[in-house]
Design a protein around this nucleic acid. Structure first.
Lengths: 143, 143
DNA sequence: ATCTTTGCAAAATGTTTGCATTGGT
DNA sequence: ACCAATGCAAACATTTTGCAAAGAT
């Protein structure tokens, strides 16, 4: 991978002719250094704690924009709590195990799972753009 | 399958020493005849239209109770929109394709996918209780 | 009679929108 | 100068909770 995610994001947004201000930059930077999914509230809190408080609405708008351009993925882990993480430019992605005891979100990837979904989409005759796999159970520490 | 889902639900709740009133019965009946996932609002609307209006809070409480006993599954289709469907007593389950164009929720099952998740959970050394797979894309009609 | 279930209303939570101001180019 | 981006506050949608009344056993 020649480009980092951050560079890729900047390239895409610049190509779209968008200007870029502080809030957007802060959210992008935060997502860039975060390995796994974050909730919007967590993003807001982190930005405030790091001394750059940012409006909630701006955060949601930035996330929506990034999702629209395929730069961020939304992970639905439950009712009323969406989480967000950067999408790899190469299309690689991981999935999540939500530990029902400690609440930890553990990321993993699995080629077998991807293959299963690929052949499944062919069998069904549908075009699958995205897929979310959320496992719920006990993580290694809690089990 | 010797027992219908409805009978199974009644057996489990009776074994738990719970009484059962009208609202609960209505929600159970509705889920029993519904093949796929429904939102809480859809449940409320359907009950009202069929002449048995039922409090929103009761609907949520019934759903929460049924989930707790493993009788119903929650499908997270987005932020702030959960859908609910009955869980098969045998542990069989299906997953969903959410069509991004027409909004249809298409159910499917796939042994290959189940196998992939099984071997994955072994590889990771975690205990997986439930899993949600939500595909997003275009359904056959919209593609 | 007791204890659960129900329904209403209110609150909590998470997300979106309107609008005036700021800021990038 | 123009138009996008931001922040605030308010609107909005969904889900949860408190409490009194009704219902089940």
């Amino acid at each position: 991978m020649a480009l980092t995610w951050t560079e890729h994001v900047h390239a895409v947004l610049a190509a779209a002719g968008l200007k870029h201000g502080g809030a957007r930059e802060r959210v992008i930077e935060l997502l860039a250094r975060e390995p796994c999914a974050l909730s919007a509230v967590a993003i807001e809190d982190t930005l405030r704690e790091q001394g750059t408080p940012t409006g909630r609405a701006s955060i949601y708008r930035v996330l929506e924009l990034l999702i629209e351009y395929g730069l961020v993925e939304r992970v639905a882990v439950g009712p009323g709590q969406a989480m967000f993480e950067r999408a790899d430019p190469q299309g690689e992605h991981h999935h999540h195990l939500l530990c029902e005891q400690c609440g930890a979100l553990v990321a993993f990837d699995d080629p077998g799972l991807e293959r299963a979904i690929d052949s499944l989409s062919q069998r069904l005759g549908v075009r699958v753009e995205h897929h979310d796999v959320v496992l719920r159970g006990a993580c290694q520490r809690c089990d």
